[in-house]
Design a protein around this nucleic acid. Structure first.
Lengths: 331, 331
DNA sequence: GGATCTCCATGAATCGATTCACGCGCCGGA
DNA sequence: TCCGGCGCGTGAATCGATTCATGGAGATCC
């Protein structure tokens, strides 16, 4: 068997019509007489015809693929995002090329070049510091882009309200009577850290307390379980005795809970714990973890939607998922 | 500014040469005189030229993108696989289109159609039951495919040796003195379940014991934490008293450990636990989990390598990572 | 019957990169 | 002086789908 693809010309010959008619069947079926259309469709079926996307794009000028560059595809957080993007693209029969920059500007540059060569319809990016200039270069080629999980006034972007996330988490702890709360924070360079801290402070002020007395911040060098554990050790050794800890993410919360177990402190009676991201195993831990869930799938959908239809979307609201680690009644 | 892409024609005009020469600079630079090449390269720089992949592929007939369809991109296991694929493709300057079938034959069919239209260089698939016929149809279009994590004699494939994985896990438990081992297994339809069971039995026979006395199998309806917990409850209620449990994956192990905690049994002294997959949080649990790590990245690399260069690869060896959940000395 | 209109099929031109048969100019050897 | 050979550049033809100006066949109306 010769592995050979049928072209519109082959289909036209088989159906006894012109190539223009075949193209009309594909793109404007209503403008073709029923009988003719049936003939052509039969021929396409028999020849196992698949339209050639390259030729299509070359002539039509528009592509049906979209590129997305995320920090790390290994992170479930970003794959959720990708799923949202893909779901939205499927509606308009587009395809996604998913790339992982790994925080490496060289990888990012390579992917942007490849995407430019592909002539993608647009690019969705979780930005790093070097990103913006490159996107300007893309724009000059007529390729639009959308930033994800980042707010920016100069650039199309979709994001989640981290101020609200911080506020919800801390308000929840305050409601449960906690008056000394530890925040295991990420690096201050991260917009997310600053916003969550802002939300935490707001929550405290809202109930008329003094943030400097209620909240103590420890900045972790990295967001790993070990660093979370070390952060907690540091805090407990300082003489200040928190009754609750709000962690920058679920992994650091895991580390913090490990240290609590080592010391024989129980969760939540001796110490309440709240994480962030609501990773899929948060509910499966020995003590199910209260966490702030971010609507990543919706965020991805919104980013793709913004790209395809220029529809603006508001900041998304994260949602606090309360579980046993911060709530006696569920323990 | 007019967002406009420069074509070879524009570059040729700017450099004062013919389009053929520009193409030669791109594809056979050694056949162009240095001076001419410099002129052309300068013009490309100035015009911010990017070659149009569609036109390129249309004429040249070969594509530089490869499609991969995995069960579930949300699973870190598969994203590792994707990373391996991508790393291999980068070597030959190819791009990856990553698709998630979600175990849904309709989604799979849609992606295969899209990939066929893209005219991809080849397709890498983690197969489901409906896959093989569709791949035959692709082959008729001249698109080769490689199966991942599945062994097959009729089809190009790369896989991991699950017999070895099962053998290693159970041999480890036997070495630590366990003589009543529970296997929380997946559905028997899965090749992986059958292979791991085979390995487990081999390990028992190797030390001269009777598998029917040492091993008890409970088949879980799904591989969730809850089902893992239920499976353990069922086993413990049966009167047979296992001292160790080998779980089909880390998530079910999480569920099993939860039940152990509920009953006040400690790990590993009352019950040793071994998982599978070595998900990234396995080391971060309260009791770090012994697990079987699969070289997913290498598997992805091998799949892409097989596609691009037709290089065969042997079955990959999984590796047992021993941690506190099965080893007193690390507890 | 002729004028007009609608419906629908036609096929040449087009997108941009690649390929290849061809030709020009120059050099060395006879 | 003439010829063969080589190095290098040329430009028309090509890939497959889409578009659109063109026109033919049949229906409708006066």
């Amino acid at each position: 068997m010769t592995p050979q693809r049928a072209s519109v010309k082959d289909v036209a010959a088989a159906a006894g019509v012109s190539v223009g008619t075949v193209s009309n069947v594909l793109n404007r079926p209503e403008s073709v007489a029923d009988k003719t259309r049936a003939k052509v469709e039969k021929a396409m079926e028999e020849l196992n015809f698949h339209r050639n996307a390259s030729a299509r794009q070359l002539r039509a000028g528009v592509s049906r693929t979209v590129g997305a560059i995320v920090m790390d595809v290994g992170n479930p957080y970003y794959t959720e995002l990708a799923r949202g993007i893909e779901d939205r693209l499927a509606v308009d029969d587009h395809t996604l090329i998913l790339c992982s920059s790994d925080d490496d500007p060289r990888r990012e540059a390579r992917f942007l070049r490849l995407l430019a060569e592909q002539g993608v319809r647009g690019v969705l990016v979780t930005p790093m510091s070097t990103t913006k200039d490159r996107l300007a270069a893309l724009r000059r080629l007529g390729i639009p882009s959308v930033l994800m999980d980042s707010s920016s006034s100069e650039h199309a972007a979709v994001g989640v309200d981290h101020v609200s996330g911080g506020r919800q988490a801390v308000a929840h702890l305050l409601t449960h009577g906690h008056r000394r709360i530890l925040f295991l924070a990420g690096p201050a360079e991260l917009q997310q850290t600053r916003h969550r801290l802002k939300g935490a402070i707001e929550a405290i002020q809202t109930v008329g307390l003094d943030p400097s007395e209620v909240l103590k911040v420890i900045t972790l060098p990295a967001l790993t379980a070990n660093d979370g554990q070390q952060g907690l050790i540091e805090a407990l050794g300082s003489g200040w005795d928190p009754t609750a800890v709000f962690c920058m993410n679920d992994i650091t919360a895991l580390g913090a809970m490990r240290e609590l177990r080592v010391r024989g402190l129980s969760v939540p009676s001796d110490m309440a714990v709240v994480g962030y991201d609501d990773l899929y195993f948060a509910a499966e831990l020995m003590t199910p973890l209260t966490s702030v869930r971010q609507p990543m799938r919706q965020l991805g959908w919104a980013a793709a939607d913004l790209l395809l239809t220029d529809t603006r979307h508001d900041l998304f609201e994260p949602e606090l998922i309360v579980r046993a680690s911060s709530d006696f009644e569920r323990a």
